[in-house]
Design a binder for these strands. Structure first.
Lengths: 336, 336
DNA sequence: ATGAAAGCGCTAACAG
DNA sequence: CTGTTAGCGCTTTCAT
């Protein structure tokens, strides 16, 4: 049986209350007493039971994180950022994966709400209305999503798209395709919107290519549509899709970037490894994870008026090998 | 304030104990009463406080999972398997990432031990001695590692290597390199050993190429050594390394599989997407995660004599495009 | 500065 | 079948 605070109290010859104080509010006990308590605690290998403490303080020291898909390297990176920040603040984190199913989100929130001080919903797929009703009994902050006036951390998707489009325009591209991600993704909406604005401003034709799952396979499936669209460049919802695009273009023998330029989004590790390396809009994944934990913690510690409830992190285009000058004669309708 | 069991009891006009029973041991209360309780609970949106329950039952309903690196797709897949199985058993899971640092493992175990019913250490990097002392106060099961008589779930690494080597031998390869992973990885040791045995049996020369980090960069760094070794085929510690190998070979203009064959291990999603697609030893990642949760849960429910304390899952070679017949004149010492 | 006692939300005897 | 009582490990008044 693990030692309890009573054991320590007995060993140190003080009351439970004193042990409690010595350990969590050290300046409330005489140094000599504190030393005795600390010695006894160390001796016995005492570790306070957080659940019991939580029962009374109302704080569990736990955070929850819900993501659409852990197998997606983007979310894996976010998780690492969240982890690191939580650990630094001496919190543990529950992680749950919805498998891209919007309906699972509310369930998971309910399941976790009672066991955590706060919850991070990363890129939630549920519609705004549903999101609004969720998590009444715990603090929740959104990441990669804005909904009502829920606190949130986002990245500047629109600006990233602007950078990408200006880069392509500067290379002479006048017809650019966008391979859209999940319909329910807020980031996708942001990216589309940013793209439309920039395309208009820059006199670029924007071709919208269906919605595809945010995975390699999505890109593979989208590639032929992109080619047929006559675009000389394509921006993908994310790097996974861009990589799928690259793969299918390779199979069809369409040279990148000579015949068509490709831009991804997120800058997952893998994208630097493709051949040629993928030009992509880098998103600060780890930093966003850390920032979200920071926001959540400040909310918990200082209440809702502790500062700004929204934070937006910058994005940055990274030019690598998949973008080049537009071909003289666009590959309109055929690849020859 | 969230409703407590008292609120429900009052609303239903029964005692707390009856509510507790109605909800967790339904057959101990009269159907009519049960219905009243259930109605009241639903009405109030009552959700039992698991921490409070845990305080008395000694069961938290939480599991802990510690992995070396969430950004590694292999572990991401494992995590998904663990997640799914835990959720099915109505358990939540704490996940922690050690960043490949062996010393972080013990700390994390200590931090989590009190809050979980059991802990899964996935591919722990700590030495056996250290592992033995860890987790006295909670049930821990190992995954991808055997240490003492700790319960564990592993995969048949040696057999996977055998399959890979026999495949290569059948293609005429007589000199095969192995790019080793982390020195502290048990899986790596298993793979090396399996390889040595099979190489001896099959009359194949095995060349051991240093230890490299289990990442893309590791493979990039190893490629030139492999080429210089005169091997006509190479087996990598894992797919990430194999992909790095492929990349560097591509840069050097060495055709795969014509000049050299490449085999990976793990079968992470990405490996089917390379060009050519990677031949690899598939490891049942999700299934291993599920099996580990199963073992842990049976340990918790039925005690240490509930059945076998070790499970080994099979591995399976998947032949794709990076392996082919050995070149007539091996690329001994040079690539021309 | 320290101790005694109350109680967080829940379940487990033990009566009835 | 159901209510009463005790108490899990801890923090927090309230005394002293």
């Amino acid at each position: 049986m693990a030692p309890t605070i009573r054991d320590v109290a007995r060993a140190a010859g003080v009351s439970q209350a004193t042990v409690s104080r010595a350990l969590s509010m050290p300046d409330l006990v005489r140094p000599a007493t504190r030393a005795r308590v600390e010695a006894a605690a160390r001796e016995l290998g005492y570790r306070p039971n957080r659940a019991a403490r939580g029962l009374i303080t109302g704080r569990t020291g736990n955070l929850g994180l819900i993501v659409p898909d852990l197998a997606n390297p983007f979310f894996a990176a976010v998780v690492k950022g969240v982890q690191a920040a939580a650990r630094a603040a001496d919190h543990s984190v529950f992680i749950a994966d919805t498998d891209e199913e919007a309906s699972a989100e509310a369930d998971l929130v309910r399941a976790l709400a009672k066991q955590v001080d706060g919850l991070i919903l990363c890129s939630p797929r549920a519609p705004d209305e549903e999101l609004a009703s969720v998590g009444a009994d715990t603090t929740v902050v959104l990441m990669n999503r804005v909904a009502g006036d829920r606190p949130s951390v986002t990245v500047d998707n629109a600006d990233g798209m602007r950078q990408a489009l200006e880069h392509l325009a500067a290379l002479g591209h006048r017809r650019v395709a966008f391979v859209a991600g999940p319909r329910t993704s807020w980031s996708n909406a942001q990216r589309e919107e940013g793209l439309h604005r920039s395309a208009e401003a820059g006199g670029v034709d924007l071709v919208h290519v269906g919605h595809f799952p945010p995975q390699f396979e999505g890109g593979v499936a989208a590639a032929d549509l992109v080619v047929a669209s006559g675009a000389t460049a394509v921006i993908a919802y994310n790097d996974l899709v861009a990589l799928g695009l690259l793969s299918r273009l390779g199979v069809r023998g369409i040279p990148v970037p000579d015949a068509i330029s490709v831009v991804g989004c997120d800058d997952i590790g893998m994208s630097a490894m493709s051949h040629p390396a993928l030009t992509t809009v880098s998103v600060p994944k780890r930093a966003a994870g850390r920032a979200t934990v920071g926001l959540l913690l400040s909310l918990l510690n200082a209440g809702p008026d502790a500062g700004p409830m929204h934070r937006e992190l910058p994005t940055q285009l990274i030019v690598r090998g998949t973008t080049g000058v537009a071909p003289i004669s666009p590959t309109k309708g055929s690849s020859r």
